[in-house]
Simulated scan of single mutants.
Amino acid sequence: MAEHNESGRLAEQLAADWLIGKGYELVAQNYRHGHAEIDLIMKHRGILIFVEVKFRSGTGFGYAEEFVDATKRKLLIKAADHFIYEEDWKKDIRFDIVGVYKDRSGNFNFRQFEDAFY
């Protein structure tokens, strides 16, 4: 597996653990539909949350939220629509982005952008 793929999987697991620590419930991880993949699907306070996780080893090239373009958002929404249909979900939803940042000391920091798009 390529190093960036391993970093991405680690970031997804760290983000899931971080969100669980904040009271979120993990529903699904790496949900695929067609060409789209939703990194994490969580529940929190009665809301179904579709989470895109972005890993950055610094902010020199920009922040996580800057790397979810219109094409990616469209794919995520399409996959989320399919998940909602499969689960017959009738309550509120939202789309979040969680940035996982590794600092020079090797520590991981998180930044959550709630209701980032739709």
Rank of each mutant, 00 (worst) to 15 (best):
D17G: 02
I38H: 04
I93C: 06
F61Y: 12
E66V: 06
R94D: 03
I84P: 00
Y63C: 11
D81A: 07
E86H: 03
E114W: 11
Q29M: 13
R104G: 10
V27R: 15
G21I: 09
I41W: 02
A28L: 12
K22R: 15
W89P: 05
A2W: 15
A2F: 14
F117P: 00
L10D: 14
Y24S: 08
A116F: 06
K72T: 12
N109E: 08
L19P: 06
Y24F: 15
E87N: 07
D69S: 08
R111H: 09
V68S: 03
R94E: 10
F83R: 04
H82A: 11
T71I: 10
H33F: 14
H4T: 11
G62K: 07
F50W: 06
G62W: 03
N5E: 15
Y85N: 08
A64K: 08
A79K: 00
W18T: 09
A16G: 07
R56Y: 06
E114Y: 11
D88Q: 09
N5M: 15
V51M: 04
A79E: 00
G23V: 05
G60M: 07
A80W: 00
D103L: 05
I97Q: 02
R56L: 10
A11E: 13
I41C: 05
I41N: 03
R9M: 12
L26G: 04
I49K: 13
K90H: 07
A80P: 01
A11C: 11
W18P: 03
K22D: 10
Y31M: 02
H82G: 00
H44E: 06
F67W: 12
G99K: 04
K78Q: 10
G99Q: 09
H82Y: 09
E25A: 13
N5A: 15
F117E: 00
E12S: 12
G8Y: 09
S105I: 05
K43E: 15
A15T: 10
A2Y: 14
H33R: 09
R94W: 00
